[in-house]
Amino acid sequence: MECVFGLVGNGFAIVAADSSAVHSILVHKSDEDKIMVLDSHKLVAASGEPGDRVHFTEYIQKNVSLYQFRNGIPLTTAAAANFTRGELATALRKNPYSVNILLAGYDKESGPSLYYIDYIATLHKVEKGAFGYGSYFSLSMMDRHYHSGMSVEEAIELVDKCIVEIRSRLVVAPPNFVIKIVDKDGAREVAWRQSIKDTGALPV
């Protein structure tokens, strides 16, 4: 029941992911951070098989760091997305990774961007995107409420609406979510949305 979604606003990109590590009918932990910081201005939110997800995102992170170390300049968000897509495409013909990715970043020249990359190496630049069972509800909420040029406050409010909808609609809804943002000041965590039973109320 994984849920990963994100959107692009006015000068920033924001991504949210559930924090449940689940196998079959067992919940192993509820504080798994599925949004990795690739570098100072890039985030990658991933869903999929836990082993593939952790191994592949760490592999991408180390290669992005290696490129910057060798060349003295960081990859742009578009370049990092294309590199990620290329590695998935190569693995697809050998030992495919069961991992879906939303890659968000901020570049001085082009501003914020969000890339949708699925397990069969499909790459699209999008304004909003989602993976997992929660995508049925988060995409519909974003279709209704999203508009280009959203402020940070509006985007966080929309993310909260998506989380509320997922929690109220999914039979087995993830209890906790982590939200991160990337803008000209870098990538950082915005909030951790705890479960209803922990907070006593739904997010406002």
Rank of each mutant, 00 (worst) to 15 (best):
V54M: 03
V54C: 01
H55Q: 13
F56D: 02
F56G: 02
T57Y: 05
E58Q: 12
Y59L: 12
K62D: 07
V64R: 03
S65I: 12
S65Y: 03
Q68C: 03
Q68W: 01
Q68H: 08
F69G: 00
F69I: 12
R70N: 11
R70G: 00
G72W: 05
G72P: 10
G72K: 07
G72C: 09
I73Y: 13
P74G: 06
L75N: 12
T76C: 03
T76Q: 04
T77Q: 00
T77D: 00
A78L: 15
A79L: 04
A81T: 08
N82M: 15
N82H: 15
F83W: 12
F83M: 15
R85A: 07
G86P: 02
E87W: 01
E87K: 11
L88M: 08
L88H: 08
L88F: 09
A89N: 13
T90N: 12
A91R: 14
L92Y: 14
N95H: 11
Y97T: 00
Y97Q: 05
S98D: 12
V99E: 05
N100P: 01
L102T: 10
A104V: 07
G105K: 03
G105N: 05
G105L: 06
Y106D: 01
D107A: 04
K108T: 08
K108C: 00
K108A: 14
E109Y: 01
E109V: 05
S110N: 11
P112G: 07
S113F: 06
S113D: 07
S113W: 03
S113L: 09
L114N: 02
Y116L: 10
I117L: 09
I117N: 04
I117R: 02
D118S: 10
Y119L: 11
I120F: 13
I120L: 11
A121I: 13
H124M: 14
H124Q: 11
K125S: 13
K125L: 08
K125A: 13
V126R: 10
V126G: 11
E127H: 12
E127V: 05
E127G: 10
E127C: 05
E127Q: 14
K128G: 07
K128R: 15
K128V: 07
G129V: 11
G129L: 13
A130C: 08
F131P: 07
F131N: 09
F131I: 05
G132N: 04
G132F: 01
G132C: 04
Y133S: 10
G134H: 07
G134A: 10
